[in-house]
């Protein structure tokens, strides 16, 4: 009986490589695309059309780009344009194609201690948060959202690092955990709209600032450099890139809604606005 169990276990283990050999690509992407449910909507359509299975590793943009640099994914699909351009410039992959956008929203507690609800000017809102020393949760994880948040502070002329350990709280985690923290502490936080819409544990958090052009959030896609990483599945990965920027993929993106609200706006065929 012992021997039969061992044999069965070994067979189970040996079958793993076989599983890994099905036609598939690995995408390093961001928590926002995964946790907003976009991939859950998009990928089955792509797989149905092409027979290629897609495996998404959802990380912060910085980490996702690092996974691409190490050759552990076939393509990256992220949202931090300056970091993406560095990725391309250093030869880690590319070319970078823009795919879609949505926007960031500034979230805050109902009590709104900084008094910024309804504000349209993000820079002014951040200055008031800093002035009120109202709790603000930062991702602090080199993600696209974190990079965007730091740019916004810069535009506001405020160095939030001064508030570190007091009102400025860097959690070093993904969007969801950061939102959980903000909800628990009644803090302000910058979030991408997709994750916010899909987020369930809101407590009394709500959107306080939105619609500012500075809150624009662009997503781009890049093939990992196959000259550096010979195992990159160029044909299949390129197929995905071609699809996502073509009308079929763009329409699929536009078709994803939560409660009747469209989360992402395809813009591969129009020139990308410069934020």
């Amino acid at each position: 009986m012992h021997r039969r169990f061992l044999a069965a276990a070994l067979v189970a283990l040996l079958s793993l490589p076989a599983l890994a050999q099905e036609r598939s690509i690995t995408i390093a992407s961001t928590t926002s695309t995964e946790q907003s449910g976009l991939f859950g909507h998009l990928l089955p359509i792509f797989t149905r059309e092409t027979g290629i299975a897609v495996r998404v590793v959802a990380l912060g943009t910085g980490q996702a780009l690092d996974v691409g640099r190490r050759g552990d994914a076939d393509l990256v699909f992220v949202h931090d344009r300056p970091a993406e351009e560095r990725f391309v410039a250093e030869g880690a992959g590319g070319p970078r194609l823009h795919v879609m956008f949505n926007d960031f929203v500034l979230i805050g507690p109902a009590a709104d201690p900084a008094g910024i609800a309804g504000q349209r000017d993000t820079a002014e809102a951040l200055r008031r948060i800093a002035a009120a020393r109202a709790p603000f949760v930062s991702r602090g994880d080199r993600s696209g959202t974190h990079a965007a948040e730091l740019r916004l502070w810069q535009q506001a002329g405020v160095d939030p690092v001064a508030g570190r350990g007091a009102w400025y709280r860097e959690v070093g985690q993904g969007m969801g955990p950061a939102l959980n923290t903000a909800a628990a502490q009644g803090a302000y936080i910058l979030a991408d709209r997709g994750t916010w819409l899909a987020f369930r544990n809101r407590q009394d958090l709500r959107i306080v600032v939105e619609g500012d052009a500075r809150l624009f959030n662009q997503y781009g896609v890049m093939l990992v450099n196959p000259q550096r990483h010979l195992h990159v599945k160029v044909a299949e990965a390129q197929r995905f890139i071609d699809w996502i920027v073509a009308p079929a993929g763009q329409a699929a993106i536009a078709g994803y809604q939560i409660n009747g609200e469209q989360l992402f706006f395809p813009n591969a065929t129009v020139p990308e606005p410069v934020s």
């Binding site: 928590t31 946790q35 969801g176 987020f199 369930r200």
Partner: peptide, 24 residues
Amino acid sequence: GGNIEGFTRVMTTAIALETSKGDL
């Protein structure tokens, strides 16, 4: 594992994911 849906997602990473999504 990367918590890849349908491929490397296990109970604990699924729990972590649902916690992230705020679906406590």
